[in-house]
Amino acid sequence: MVDETVTLPQPPAEVAESPFILLCNEWIRYTSEAFMARQQQQQQQQTDSKSNPGAAADGTTDGRPVAAGAGEGSSSSSSPSSLSSADVDGVMVALEEMGFMLGGKIVERLTASRSRLQDEKDIVKFICKDLWNYLFHKQADRLQTNRRGGYVIQDNTLRWLRHMPPMPDTAPPHKRPMAPVSVICGIIRGALTHLGLSASVSASVAEPPCCSFSIKIPS
């Protein structure tokens, strides 16, 4: 007779959520500040090379193209209140990339013991159910599709936004609700990419903690 007492795999151990959220915030802050520092450095080099043409060679050794519009004579941009929207966008792109990296790893763990998802719809459902559950202990509240590769995932109580105080538009980028949301966009895109779909993911935060993510999968 077969022994029925098969040991089930242990459920993954849990830790408290607050250190995790704080860790994410620290990472967001680091990424955001590192981006701004690079930006300022480039600007500095550009102004140096303008005022002192002899230094031009030094200013470009970095090899990075200076973002368009970022360095156009705005010497006052060292104060956070005068951030150009290009700077903020740049920070959000950096945060999205950070999420992308994480999203791939998460899905690798989540799909380790299941068969390959084939259908586009199944993959998006997987995002709404499994990935959402893993990140937020709940499923997404709503999924809509236009049947042409466009999906909208809506969540009315995004956990990571729960504790964020309302912030004015002049707040440093890492304190805006868009910061964690950009990371989540990256996580979703990373997850989709890992599952074989290249897509673009954008989000809008109408009223935190309510948030919607739109996924566009080019056919």
Partner: peptide
């Protein structure tokens, strides 16, 4: 005290931390 906390999977914390260290 732990039983009163909101929880998150330990794996997620480990993956997140690992990604952070990688970036640093």
């Amino acid at each position: 005290a732990f039983s009163k906390m909101d929880k998150v999977s330990a794996e997620l914390l480990a993956l997140t931390y690992g990604s952070l260290v990688t970036q640093l």
